[in-house]
Each structure stands twice: as structure tokens, then as C-alpha cells.
Design a protein around this nucleic acid. Structure first.
Lengths: 210, 210
DNA sequence: TGAATTGTTGCAGATGCTGCAAAAATACGC
DNA sequence: GCGTATTTTTGCAGCATCTGCAACAATTCA
């Protein structure tokens, strides 16, 4: 209900959320994590520090723009596309990157975000936690799709969920490495190339381990 | 130099460190993470709160017993054994679990630690960060061993390091799942079985992805 | 034994984060 | 429009983690 309403109240909420994300990312980029205090972020976004916590659980969450969203129909169609393109790895990588770029309005922040993640790797740890918190939702969304493949089909549901969780861990590690490489080479490549590289990394390691 | 000395000073340091770990683990287990305050832990260990930070960087680190240790010769021989037993996956899993159980004195804490990790999963995020901080050391230790296998041999050093980092991510995810299962089934199995299960999980997912 | 080194402690303070209750903004029925 | 109900914002008081600093205590070493 809430997300479909578009009264003044809802519009303002989205706007405020966006201002907070933008302020957080911008200030951390300019001043560094420790000097970009909550006070500074909130002053920049023009809200009280107390209000900040109506929007994000922590400073880190604001930097990453993380939200506890239900899997939207948009994202599901994205996932399906990734899956039919080439299978479970792409599906999972897509999932990881979509967490980093959930809102259209904030997509301009993505390059800065990746730069910051590279600078403060604990943020990706935070993101892995978020992935884990969302594991149930993710397995619910990914499970049915994955079970259509031969390799995941003959598994019972429990084993399938387990695999999804480990798959997420593997893919978020690959994402981190891909982002690192991207930052090391001057942060020039488009986001799609980074995601593509993450796919490649996963495939390489699977190949080597088999 | 420091670790090989065994004067009064060094003995006391080890003892204090141990008291802090034990107090942290015990109190978190008994009272829960949020009620096991620094003050309580330090009172139990009989040191000032200020001194606490001479031993650990954070409360979480004390709970996990994490230390920035150089890879010891002991751990290297452990690794070699794991590797010759069955390859790179065992090697990496061994690495992950050895982080959880570095000191002989604190080995009695391991079951409690695993129980707590299962209860507060953000701790494993913290551990993944630690793994990452130690990536350079770990790759330095694991790289030469891994390069002896055919699959890792033909790679240049950079690619090899990348693989190790992703491998660590994969294996720490598997470790988390294995610990979860262990806790779900009553925390009865010995630690070796948990590690073994983690190995199995990694192999399963690699098989499915290939 | 006395000086040098290292470890401990208290204190003041910054920062992140939470509960609570008052005040402001928005929505909704009439 | 108007008044009421609901939601959001805000300030404040307070707790907890963590850091720098300087004095103090313990250990080491010559």
C-alpha cells in the first residue's frame, strides 16, 4: 500500500531518503569515513540526526543505500533475464549488484559508492550481512528459478536453500574483487563491465576447483 | 621477538588476553550481546576498560578472539597437511577454522563461540573482514602451496591471489552454514565434523555449478 | 640499585545510536 | 474549508563503544 501511494507524504519520504543517501555518499567521499559524521550528513540533508534513524539503521546503511525491500516484480524479471542469459551464476551476481543499485533516483551515486566500498571494505561486510538477512527472501525468489536447472532440480528444498546461501557468499566475494580491480584501473569502466567481470571470476574459480 | 620471550611481562599479557576472551564469550553467552557490556567484561576480567583496547580493537574481536598474528610455522604445517590430504578446498577451510581457534589455551571456548556466531551472524561478517585484512598474509602462505596444483599452477601470481580471495569468501560462507547446521542439530557434533561438513558443502556447490 | 622500557589506569570527550514525549505536518471524513 | 486522526519530525536525555593523553605502576636491563 505504502509504496503505491503517491501523496505528499510519500513523495517527501522518498526525497528525504534520497537526500540522506546522497549526503552520506558525497561527504564520505570528500572527507573520509571518520570525518563524515552523522551530524554533518544530517545537516547537509537538512534533517535532524534523530530523523536519520527513521530512514536508515546505521551510517553504513545510508552510505550503501540499503533498504529492507521486498523483492519487487521488476527485480524478479531482471533475475529471470539474467538466468535465461546464462544460468545460476549470472542470476546470483545480478542479485548482488542489484542490492547496490536499488533505486533509479540514486543510480548516479553508484560509481561513488563503489569507490567508497573499495576504500572501506568493511562496507562490503555489512552488505554481506544484509544479503544474509535477506537470505530467506532471496532463496524464496531464486529457489524456484534455480530448481529449473538440472543441477539444482534433484535437490530437496533444504539443500537448495543452503546452496543459495553459499552461492551468495561466493558471488559477493567475486563482486568485491571485481570492484577492487575496477577501482585500481581508474574507475573508468561502466558498471556492466564490473558485473561481467564478477561473473568471469566466479566461473574461473569454479573451473579451477572442479 | 615478543612471542618467543617468556618473561613475566609476556606471561601476564597472554593471561590477561585469555581472561578477556573468556569473559567476553561467557558473558555474551549468558546475558546476550547487548547486555554483555564492555564494563561487565572488563570487571569480570579484572582490567580497566581502557586496558581492554590494548588487547582487542573491539568487543566483537574479543568475542571471536581475533588477533593480527603472523602465520605461524605451526599453522603452515597444518595447512600443508590439509592440502596433501585432499586439495585447495580443504586447505582454505582449514585456514578459516584455524582463525576461530588460534590459541591452544582458548580452545575450550570454541563451542561457545560457534554457538554465539550462530546467534549473532554479524560476527561472521566481522570475521570475513578479518580474513580480508589478512588476505595478503593468507595469499602469501597459501599461494605457494596452491601453485603446486595443476589448476593453479599455470596462473600468474596476480590471478592466483584473486582466486585465493574469492576462495576465502566461498569457504567462510560454507563455514557459516556448517556452523548453523551444527547449532540447529543441538551443537553436539565435534568441531572436526563441522569442518568436514563445510568441506562437503563447498564441494557440492562446485559440482553443481560446473 | 637506578634508569629505561613497557603496560595500566583514569579522565575527558567524540561518535553512534535509542527511548520518549512534545510539536509539526499530512491525511481524511464531514 | 474544518477539525480530528495519523504519521513524521524533532529535541533531549542517556547509554555504549572507542580514542588521545598524561600520570602512574610494573617489568626489564645494565
Amino acid at each position: 500500500m505504502q509504496s503505491s501511494e503517491s501523496g505528499l507524504r510519500e513523495r517527501k519520504r522518498v526525497e528525504t531518503r534520497d537526500r540522506l543517501q546522497t549526503a552520506a555518499v558525497t561527504l564520505v567521499d570528500q572527507r573520509g569515513m571518520e570525518h563524515a559524521t552523522l551530524d554533518a550528513i544530517c545537516k547537509e540533508a537538512d534533517v535532524s540526526t534523530r530523523t536519520f534513524f527513521n530512514y536508515f539503521d546505521s551510517k553504513e546503511d545510508a552510505i550503501l543505500g540499503l533498504e529492507d525491500v521486498a523483492i519487487t516484480s521488476d527485480s524478479v524479471s531482471d533475475l529471470l533475464e539474467a538466468y535465461v542469459r546464462s544460468g545460476p551464476i549470472e542470476l546470483t551476481i545480478r542479485m548482488v549488484f542489484s542490492l547496490l543499485n536499488p533505486s533509479v533516483d540514486s543510480s548516479a551515486l553508484l560509481p561513488l559508492r563503489m569507490k567508497i566500498i573499495n576504500q572501506y571494505p568493511q562496507l562490503l561486510g555489512r552488505m554481506a550481512n544484509q544479503l544474509q538477512r535477506m537470505t530467506q527472501q532471496l532463496t524464496a525468489a531464486m529457489g524456484p528459478i534455480l530448481r529449473e536447472t538440472s543441477n539444482f532440480a534433484d535437490q530437496d528444498e533444504t539443500e537448495s536453500k543452503i546452496s543459495v546461501e553459499i552461492l551468495l557468499s561466493l558471488c559477493s566475494g567475486a563482486a568485491r574483487v571485481a570492484i577492487k580491480e575496477w577501482a585500481a584501473s581508474g574507475s573508468k569502466a561502466p558498471i556492466e563491465a564490473v558485473e561481467q567481470r564478477a561473473n568471469e571470476l566466479v566461473k574461473n574459480i569454479v573451473k579451477r576447483l572442479k
